[in-house]
């Protein structure tokens, strides 16, 4: 199949890549760019393990073609931390024991990040709604909810300084 060249900014870095039109974004990220923090948990767009930010919006990268990102920005879990400093969402997940096997964690944190960018002060109910596109098999969700609220609080106290 003929490849097309696309220009996509991934985690702030512009990349020129040749892709088959049918290549899914998740495979471009994982196999093409070696960003294996984004995972695949299903084949029906149900689980959200592949969630990344597309121009700041959470998308399931298993349900988007790589060619659709031409000229756009994609952020993956690898782009969350700034230098060596973890994002408050990452810190919150560690603090509140919001992960076990770690497989849903990347996608879960990207959905959480998108929520907090849009709504810095969410309620528990807001968090549960925002994460309802992300399945987790280990945590029973409660500590994930706590982690996102922890991150919201941290971001607010940082913003206040």
């Amino acid at each position: 199949m003929e490849k097309r060249q696309i220009k996509v900014t991934v985690n702030g870095e512009p990349r020129l890549v040749d892709v088959e039109p049918r290549l899914l974004l998740v495979h471009l990220l994982r196999e093409g760019l070696g960003l294996t923090g984004t995972h695949i948990g299903c084949d029906t767009t149900s689980c959200g393990a592949c969630t990344v930010l597309f121009d700041g919006q959470p998308v399931k990268s298993c349900t988007m073609l790589a060619v659709q990102t031409d000229g756009h920005e994609v952020t993956t879990v690898e782009g969350l931390a700034k230098a060596s400093e973890l994002d408050p969402v990452q810190e919150g997940f560690k603090e509140e024991h919001a992960l076990q096997c770690g497989f849903c964690t990347s996608g879960m944190m990207m959905s959480a990040k998108a929520l907090l960018m849009e709504n810095p002060n969410p309620t528990e109910e807001d968090v549960r709604w925002a994460l309802s596109g992300n399945l987790c098999r280990c945590t029973g969700y409660q500590n994930i909810v706590k982690a996102v609220l922890w991150a919201a609080k941290k971001m607010q106290s940082e913003a206040a300084v």
């Binding site: 994982r30 196999e31 070696g34 960003l35 294996t36 923090g37 984004t38 995972h39 695949i40 993956t76 879990v77 690898e78 969350l80 931390a81 973890l86 990452q90 997940f93 560690k94 603090e95 024991h97 992960l99 770690g102 497989f103 964690t105 990347s106 944190m109």
Partner: peptide, 21 residues
């Protein structure tokens, strides 16, 4: 005790089978 495992998992630096190349 906070988990040692989390350091790599929250950074997307775990190594699962499909990450092996």
């Amino acid at each position: 005790l906070k988990r040692k495992e989390d350091q790599r998992f929250v950074r997307g630096k775990g190594t699962y089978v499909d990450d092996v190349k």
